[in-house]
Design a protein around this nucleic acid. Structure first.
Lengths: 203, 203
DNA sequence: TTAATTTTGGACTATTCGTTCCGTATTTCC
DNA sequence: GGAAATACGGAACGAATAGTCCAAAATTAA
């Protein structure tokens, strides 16, 4: 009686890869499960997230998990890399918008005073893992360097030296703000402080 | 043959408590083992530090550890509290020095461009634990609020409103800088950016 | 000395950890 | 319809985890 149910798993939407070689096709969307993993790491931290948590949230069996990502650390690196790329792309778009208050938008995107879960996952990972996982540190360095670069090219395309310093300060400001928010400072106080500092720094 | 060695443990320096009530006296200095625990947590993070790591570093048996501190979380809270108090006292002294460049000293004390292990343990704890351990969040809030307060009273004792915003920005700046350093940015680049930002913000 | 009290070492427990493995299901290629 | 290849469910693994327990040791008060 168990044989009567014919599987429908493989015939899902399958927006990404329509299945190439031989063998049974995957029953999950890689981008989606990676996103689920990322948000779980964001909520709980890397060490505090267990394999049971992870596979439950991703909807994968342990076999599928390990065959696809190799290890707990592997799935973090993969998810973090694509998160960084996506975030940087969006950030670049803001910086190239030519908008008058592009810097303000960039600050908001980074510091996110209203505090959805999309603050900056990378800051968490750097703080928790960078000293002990070189791959995470590398991703973090790349990410922050690119942010600084985009800040610099936005605020002052002429004088590169002071622009660089101001850009670094803006980055540090936004990142530090994330910690303030995480400690419980109300959003409106975050906003006003950010606003004031940005006004002064970019004047 | 094992009985011949008479113990000398209890007759140590014992600078803190000369032993009051009845019963066997402790063989360890509470402040010292707390400091050891704090630095281990700082190096490895809370979740990544095991009881074996902890007791080894503190030089305690599990019995002594649990009878003195109750739990892994307990020793963190205790150590973190005294760390916060000591750091804030030193910070207050800087702010009350009347020195011309008191703000610069305060920034250095917080951001510590040369990066000894005494950066700011509290930022690590906030990032890793505040969302899930209310006690840690509370200590973090207290700590950051006090820092902001001292900044505000130092830079501009008159106009309290903009002083508050600038103080908040300086705090965020210093805290964000810690993350930059942790990601691998060289100390001299940290220093120059801090210097520039501070100059602008306090002008 | 003896009784009372506290600390200490380290064995122990029950659980959870990340990872591996195997039998079965599902697909493509011939 | 095979054969080959890949994915899946879930049991199993050894190591590691935070925390408990108890007998022995060390002290004070009588």
């Amino acid at each position: 009686m168990s044989k009567t149910t014919t599987s429908k798993l493989a015939t899902s939407k399958a927006t990404e890869k329509p299945h190439c070689g031989p063998g049974r096709p995957r029953g999950f969307n890689e981008a989606k499960v990676l996103d689920a993993a990322l948000h779980l790491f964001w909520r709980k931290g890397f060490e505090a997230t267990s394999l049971d948590d992870l596979t439950a949230e991703m909807g994968l069996s342990r076999s599928s998990f390990y065959s696809a990502f190799g290890s707990k650390q592997g799935v973090l690196i993969t998810a973090l890399t694509s998160y960084s790329n996506a975030a940087l792309a969006a950030f670049q778009e803001l910086s190239e918008s030519g908008d008058e208050d592009a810097v303000a938008s960039m600050m908001s995107a980074l510091a996110d005073p209203n505090g959805g879960p999309r603050g900056c996952m990378l800051v968490n990972c750097i703080t928790e893992l960078a000293p002990h996982q070189e791959e995470v540190a590398e991703i973090g360095r790349r990410h922050l360097a690119r942010i600084e670069e985009l800040f610099a090219s936005t605020i002052c395309p002429n004088d590169p030296d002071t622009a660089r310093n101001k850009a670094r300060a803006l980055s540090a400001l936004a990142i530090g703000t994330l910690t303030l928010r995480k400690s419980g400072l109300p959003p409106d106080q975050i906003s006003s402080a950010l606003e004031a500092a940005r006004g002064i720094l970019t004047a």
